[in-house]
Amino acid sequence: MLARILNTLLMLAVAVSITGVINRTRAVLAGRKGLRFFQHLFDAKVLLGKGAVYSPTTGILFRLAPCVCLASSLAAFLFIPVADLDPLLSFDGDVVMVAYLLALSRVSLILAALDTGSSFEGMGASREALYGALIEPAIMLSMATLAMLSGYTSLADIFSTARSLDVNLTIVVLLAAYVFLKIMFVEAGRVPVDDPRTHLELTMIHEVMCLDYSGIDLAMIQIAGWLKTAVFAMIAADAVAAAVCFDWLLAAPLAVVVAGLSVGITESMRARNKLSRNSTYILTVTAMSALIFLVGYLLLQNIEIV
């Protein structure tokens, strides 16, 4: 039980730190002093203390959606182990549940965006639905790679046994971690797929869906975003940990550093993709995960023969 609580606390720490590291990295690379490390938490606190403005076009679904988004992201979040620690929730086949809980949070925001009747939010919803559909196979493929290598179908079992993997498979697990990091970029709406800092609504994806939210609702969506980022960052870090035999003490900081640095550096170094290139980008991620699966499969077959 203690391990479960420790795991959840570590995950929370990871979730709140990643945004701080991203902001700091960007500031350093741009030669600025930058925000306070936990500024985003203070911002969220301000939002939580505010009232709200609702459009008369919207109905109950719009008001419920942030709660669904946060609750489902939180549920997915509680399935993620930190290296070989036990997560709060776990059962055989929970990799599927994590993927579909994240889909639930996505659907709630898409429908809320359509509820406002705004053409801009419709645009964002349409893009989110398409990219969500295209990234889904990559998530399942990478999960399947891990399931194949470890022989288990729950994240907790996968990462607690993956440490005894054959040395030959290390590279495959590392590559899977790389793909999970890529998936994190897509799911969290980061450059090069989406730019959270863009100033033009026409070019947004995730941010444009939340244009009409204010106060508590907006805070909930932001918190859900942190949790979602932490889910994929932690899975990637777990895979690295499994490959090179770190334990949880190192896996949690690793998630923060790798996710924060990679996002921060990417956002400082390059511009966002043209929207028409995004589908290609996401399909490339999917193709990559298929390739990694096949490499893992071949290696596994070889080992059995010899």
Partner: peptide, 17 residues
């Protein structure tokens, strides 16, 4: 959320265009 909002100003305004 409803409980917190009941003590604050919740206003109505057209969808942001």
């Amino acid at each position: 959320k409803r409980r917190a909002q009941s003590r604050r100003t919740v206003s109505s305004s057209p969808t942001w265009g």
